[in-house]
């Protein structure tokens, strides 16, 4: 029994951290731009396949490849997602959602064409190999990196939003973009910045989970689904809610996996989110502002 409780707690933190890294960027875009970024799945693909392209095709070593992949990610976000799609269609929701989804599918197809699953894509970003024991529970040591990365990135984002001038502006926009505009906040500068900030967590996420996760061209869709689920549960665009929701989802997953049937993890999460939406449609935190 003690072993089960230990395992539940350890995995609640591990899984929660993973869900947090996956969802943070999606939630940020929801909060600042007020849009559902259905192209978010492509961000994961650009991160992981960008790394592979720089390393395997262009022969770069690990660190230069990491630098290049962040540059690529920023260029992709601004040059393909923000300026041609988001900026143009931000007021036309149907066009915006369709275009973002289409772009995501185009990226998926392109990746599948150049690097199909049989290409054997793998990124050597493992900091640790092997397992570590926490109490009586064993986890891959690399998962500790995931936990640390999630806490660090989240802490930095929260500090940035609470303590910097740009952070204030971002929060002001998330509260009321029209009012912020009247007070002199330049939306055309903050929006692209928010888009760039939103792609950093998924990129880090991909780099740290690659040693324990499959890399395949269709992976973006399932990660997008996770991000949507956590963000909805947390309250659209509310980072505090997203953090709490990530760990709630992590806790549900580990309780069902260890105390129940691992086969039912996915269903249990969906059921909980469904009931939260029925009885608290705004999610855990009311999404009036980003924080």
């Amino acid at each position: 029994m003690v072993h089960i409780i230990e395992s539940i707690l350890v995995y609640a933190i591990v899984l929660g951290s993973l869900y947090l890294l996956v969802s943070l960027g999606f939630s940020l875009i929801c909060g600042v731009l007020g849009i559902f970024n259905l192209g978010y799945g492509a961000t994961f693909l650009v991160a992981i396949y960008g790394m592979w392209m720089f390393m395997a095709t262009f022969g770069l070593s690990l660190w230069p490849a990491i630098v290049c992949v962040f540059v690529l990610q920023f260029l992709f976000t601004l040059g393909v997602i923000y300026f041609p799609i988001v900026k143009r269609y931000i007021e036309k929701e149907e066009l915006l959602l369709t275009s973002l989804l289409l772009m995501s599918l185009i990226v998926e197809e392109t990746v599948n064409h150049f690097y199909p699953i049989t290409a054997g894509v793998d990124i050597p970003t493992a900091i640790f190999t092997g397992t570590m024991q926490i109490g009586s529970t064993n986890i891959p040591t690399q998962m500790l990196v995931v936990v640390i990365a999630a806490f660090l990135v989240t802490a930095l984002y929260v500090l940035f939003l609470l303590k910097t001038k740009i952070g204030f502006k971002i929060r002001a926009i998330s509260q009321n973009s029209e009012a912020a505009k009247l007070l002199g906040v330049r939306l055309e500068r903050i929006y692209p910045l928010a888009m760039i900030l939103a792609v950093i967590p998924p990129t880090i996420c991909m780099l740290v989970i690659a040693p324990v996760w499959a890399i395949e061209p269709m992976m973006g869709a399932s990660l997008l689904q996770t991000a949507i689920l956590v963000t909805i549960l947390g309250g659209l665009g509310n980072l505090r809610g997203t953090i709490i929701a990530s760990f709630i989802v992590g806790l549900i997953a580990s309780v069902v996996a260890f105390a129940g049937n691992p086969r039912l993890v996915g269903m249990a999460i969906l059921i909980v989110v469904f009931f939260v939406l029925i009885y608290k449609p705004q999610g855990i935190a009311k999404s009036e502002t980003l924080w």
């Binding site: 395992s7 899984l15 529970t137 064993n138 399932s222």
Partner: peptide
Amino acid sequence: EGKTDIKEKMFLPILEKVAA
């Protein structure tokens, strides 16, 4: 004996149980 979801991505809890 166990059944698994084809969408499963987190096998660690199952493997932990199998190990035990």
